[in-house]
Design a protein around this nucleic acid. Structure first.
Length: 211
DNA sequence: TGATGGATTATCT
DNA sequence: GATAATCCATCAA
């Protein structure tokens, strides 16, 4: 992949500024099998220790350590026992803000993405945070990568920034805490934006005494 | 040490 | 719309 990288300064700002300004730019991942790139259409902001919905709310742990480091790095986490989601770390070193990349449009490496998600329609290849990671081939191993290094394994390239008139915002998807905070940002009308789902508690399977 | 609940998705009805 | 799949961080005891 080539193109102009977003500078680290781009990420060294408050997360609610970075998040909407990321829409339209391009996340890339280079692997031995090929490159895949996605134009971001939906993101969410998480604001560190002050935000009950953030993984950093309870302080630094092994899992969220990358969030506390310098901006412009990737924070990948594993969830629901089977999915990975990715964030871009924002704000100065020592703070713990991050933008969750929720959805995008695959604009390069579509064949590779289809290989990774063979049952998906083109529209659904990266329509959702775990789908985006799967299409890009992002797993635990990519946690901590720097996206501001030219020629790096993962980069964020300057695309055509979304028209501000088309950017919408609303409550974050599937979160329990701070439900009212309108920090989900998306490009209105884009078909690759994921459907909004409020948080639901899963019923735990009842343990039967004998089986 | 055990219980609980996830920044989700595919696949049913 | 509902639910299963299924690892792991967190918290109570």
């Amino acid at each position: 992949m080539d193109g102009e990288l977003l500078p680290r300064d781009f990420f060294d700002r408050p997360v609610d500024e970075v998040a909407p300004s990321l829409l339209g730019h391009v996340i890339t991942h280079r692997t031995a099998e090929g490159d895949v790139a996605a134009r971001l259409t939906e993101v969410e902001a998480y604001a560190g220790p002050l935000d009950p919905a953030s993984h950093a709310y309870r302080g630094r742990t092994r899992r969220n350590a990358v969030m506390f480091g310098p901006p412009g790095h990737v924070y990948v986490y594993f969830t629901y026992g089977m999915h990975f989601c990715m964030n871009l770390v924002c704000g100065p070193d020592g703070t713990s803000m991050a933008v969750l990349l929720r959805a995008g449009e695959i604009i390069a490496g579509e064949d590779m993405a289809r290989t990774r998600r063979p049952r998906s329609t083109v529209r659904d290849l990266a329509r959702g945070p775990a789908r985006l990671c799967q299409a890009l081939g992002v797993v635990r191993e990519q946690n901590g990568l720097d996206v501001c290094t030219p020629g790096g394994e993962m980069t964020v390239l300057r695309g055509e920034a979304a028209d501000p008139a088309l950017i919408r915002n609303g409550p974050r998807t599937g979160v329990n805490g701070a439900k009212e905070v309108p920090w989900r940002f998306w490009i209105d009308g884009d078909p690759t934006v994921s459907p909004y789902r409020p948080h639901v508690l899963r019923r735990r399977k009842k343990i039967t005494a004998d089986e």
